[in-house]
């Protein structure tokens, strides 16, 4: 099995990319008032209390940082896009040390049940190893595989399979074992 090796220069580039990306995400929606309810007749900004606006909230982690990475068919190595997301996750976990996480590995339905359990475990582990390589303590992370038991999308086409081949980092309060 091979785990992703990332050159330092590439990481630097990716981290920069991530910053830009996250900024765009953060201000592109609620803050700039593209939401119909955001700008009322008085011209005063009014936002619903969205927990995702709090950078230290799990909702922010889930929606703004991105809680999942996707995998190619039969692959468990983290893609370039995936590393950007995982760098964000690692930064967030570093800044929010009171959280631990369970990484759920999933497969699409194109495979036998048992092989897909093993494949999902491989994917979850690839994410765990990457996060550890980015400075997250291993004892804050656990992995679980769901194989093809919990697809996100139910169509039997590549458009759905691509979203189902995923590893999702699920936060929990408190330190893991």
């Amino acid at each position: 099995m091979t785990f992703p090796f990332v050159k330092p220069a590439l990481i630097a580039a990716l981290v920069l990319g991530l910053t830009a990306c996250t900024d765009a995400g953060r201000f592109g929606k609620g803050g700039s008032g593209d939401d119909a309810a955001a700008l009322n007749a008085t011209g005063i900004d009014q936002n619903a209390l969205d927990p995702a606006n709090d950078p230290n909230s799990p909702a922010y982690f889930q929606q703004k940082v991105g809680d999942r990475v996707l995998f190619a068919v039969d692959q468990s190595s983290v893609s370039v896009d995936g590393r950007v997301t995982l760098d964000g996750q690692a930064n967030w976990l570093t800044q929010n040390p009171s959280y631990s996480a369970i990484i759920e590995g999933h497969a699409d339905e194109q495979g036998t049940r048992e092989y897909n359990l093993a494949l999902g475990a491989r994917r979850a582990n690839a994410v765990q190893e990457y996060l550890i390589s980015r400075g997250v303590a291993g004892n804050r992370l656990r992995t679980v595989t769901y194989g093809k038991e919990r697809p996100l999308e139910v169509c039997s086409e590549e458009a759905c399979y691509a979203k189902n081949r995923r590893a999702v980092t699920v936060l929990s309060a408190g330190l893991g074992s």
Binding site: E114, A121, R122
Partner: peptide, 28 residues
Amino acid sequence: QPGTMTFAPRFAPNGQTVVFSLEQGGNT
């Protein structure tokens, strides 16, 4: 065993021994 996942079990013909897959650190 803590930190492992196990699946794909099957009995041996003697009805006592069990063979199965154990995952640890991404390897099964």
